Amino acid sequence: MQVIKNIKFHSVALFLFWVLLIGLLVPITVGMIITLDLERTKLKNELSVFHHETLKTLVESTEDAMLSFSPDGVSNTVRFLLRDERIVSIEVFSDIFDLYLMKVSKEIPEHEIDSSTLRQIVSKDRENLGFVQITVDNGWIVPKLKQEHNIIIILFAAMFFCALLLVIPSIHFKILRPLQRLKKQAEVLSSGDLSIVCEWQGRDELTILGQTLEAMRSKLNENFNAMKEMAVTDDLTGLPNRREFYTELKILLNLSSRYNHQLSIAIFDIDYFKNVNDTYGHGIGDEVLKELSQLVAHKARKTDLLARIGGEEFAIVLPETSVSVAGRLLNELRTVVSGWSFPHGEKLTVSIGVTGYSGVESIEQLMETADKALYEAKEQGRDRVVIH
């Protein structure tokens, strides 16, 4: 139990937090990087395809113009192509006339542009007519990438926080809270308090562990209560033994003294009990003691404390009772006992010594006074109550 008590469960929570954070962040970050790289490749491929397709279109539309040296024939096509933001410049050169039919570029300083150029020879019937050249802005993909970057970050951030919203409550309710309950359960067990019940419901491993601890606690509590009962109970009669009697008497005396209430104590035993053992044996003697304890317990009030304090000697405490009332009640009890038939078929009597508590006597003084009264009852002929 000491090992369980020393475990710091907050370190488990911290560990799970870092595992969760790393477990979510690393895949999401890697996924975001891969997605951005794929998007960059896609945009580059898209720009390359556009570049080649545009060049092909321009070649097809300028072939006749090169033969006839007709700049107007390519003007509309070039003007239309330049509307696309990706194109930086277009050149159409005629080898036949050794002149440019068209050479246009956007008003952007060349050094500010990350551009790439494609040139293709225009020929007809194996005769070179000239060439066309198109330059595109590679930097066109930058704002597109930024836009995609922002969208991807928002998407992955949403995925991350949604995962946290789903996973964190699950970890809390399925791991951290059961661990906290296990910690408290272990602390209770290690403190020795076996009366606190901890209920568990479920079939997961932590619940099974908690149920196992609860079963251990229940069994230990049963054993402890049984041992406690054995420690304070007389085995033969089932009455409180001498130790328990003194413990309970101390509490009753404190209450009587604090609230100034009356209290009486009596000690009684069976007259000539030795003759019963000698004549009928100890087995019958034990049966007589059990019969007497049951008889007195039945006749005593619920508030009275009855105990066997040794051999055939018993003690009874009567709270809220003056010594005169106690004497009358005990005389009635003595009469009932003297008229009772015991297991050996004969009648028995008891002698009783009684004293009252004034609020100042110790337990030893009270017991000694009651014992002296019992001795006087014996000296006076037995089967009587003597009050001191």
Score class of each variant (00 low, 15 high):
Ala326Arg: 02
Asn221Trp: 11
Leu333Phe: 12
Gln262Pro: 01
Ala215Asp: 12
Glu205Gly: 06
Gly281Ala: 14
Thr279Leu: 03
Ile265Cys: 11
Gly210Met: 06
Gln262Ser: 15
Glu313Trp: 09
Val288Tyr: 01
Phe273Lys: 07
Gln262Cys: 00
Val325Met: 01
Trp340Met: 10
Thr279Ser: 14
Met227Asp: 05
Asp235Leu: 09
Asn277Asp: 14
Asn225Thr: 00
Ala215Phe: 10
Thr335Gly: 03
Gly285His: 08
Ala226Val: 01
Lys219Gly: 08
Leu292Glu: 04
Leu333Ala: 11
Asn225Cys: 09
Arg258His: 11
Asp278Glu: 11
Arg328Trp: 05
Tyr246Cys: 07
Lys250Phe: 11
Pro319Met: 05
Val325Lys: 06
Asp278Met: 10
Ala326Leu: 00
Glu313Lys: 07
Pro240Ile: 12
Val323His: 06
Glu332Trp: 01
Glu205Met: 08
Arg242Trp: 09
Ile208Phe: 05
Arg301Met: 04
Asn225Met: 04
Ser257Gln: 14
Leu236Tyr: 00
Arg334His: 11
Ala326Met: 01
Thr279Ile: 06
Leu239Pro: 03
Arg328Tyr: 11
Gly311Leu: 11
Lys228Asn: 13
Ser218Met: 13
Arg243Asp: 04
Glu312Pro: 04
Leu289Ile: 15
Arg334Ala: 14
Gly210Pro: 07
Leu213Lys: 05
Glu332Thr: 06
Ser322Gly: 15
Thr212Met: 14
Leu209Val: 15
Gly238His: 00
Arg328Gln: 03
Ile316Lys: 01
Leu305Trp: 09
Glu287Gly: 04
Val276Phe: 12
Arg258Trp: 00
Lys299Arg: 09
Val325Arg: 07
Ala231Arg: 04
Glu312Ser: 10
Gln211Pro: 03
Asp304Arg: 02
Ile309Lys: 02
Ser341Tyr: 08
Gly238Ala: 00
Tyr246Arg: 10
Ala226Ser: 07
Val323Gln: 13
Leu209Trp: 03
Ala266Trp: 02
Val325Pro: 00
Thr233Ser: 01
Leu289Gly: 03
Gly310Asp: 09
Phe224Leu: 14
Arg242Asp: 13
Glu313Leu: 10
Leu333Val: 07
Glu287Pro: 01
Thr279Tyr: 06
Leu348Glu: 09
Glu222Ser: 02
Gly311Ile: 08
Val336Ser: 12
Phe342Gly: 13
Arg243Met: 02
Arg217Met: 13
Phe268Asp: 04
Leu292Arg: 03
Ser218Tyr: 07
Leu292Tyr: 07
Leu236Lys: 00
Arg334Glu: 10
Val288Thr: 00
Gly210Asn: 11
Phe273Trp: 03
Phe268Met: 10
Lys290Trp: 02
Phe268Trp: 06
Leu333Gln: 08
Val325Thr: 01
Leu329Asn: 12
Lys274Phe: 12
Lys347His: 15
Leu252Gly: 05
His282Val: 11
Tyr280Gly: 13
Lys228Asp: 11
His261Ser: 13
Leu329Cys: 05
Asn254Glu: 15
His298Tyr: 08
Lys290Gly: 06
Leu306Ala: 04
Arg334Ile: 09
Phe342Leu: 13
Ser256Asp: 03
Ile270Trp: 05
Leu239Gln: 06
Asn331Trp: 01
Asp234Glu: 08
Ala266Tyr: 05
Ser338Leu: 09
Ser218Asp: 13
Leu329His: 02
Lys228Glu: 15
Leu253Asn: 06
Val296Lys: 02
Gly281Ser: 12
Val296His: 05
Tyr272Cys: 10
Trp340Gln: 15
Asp269Lys: 06
Gly210Tyr: 11
Ala297Val: 02
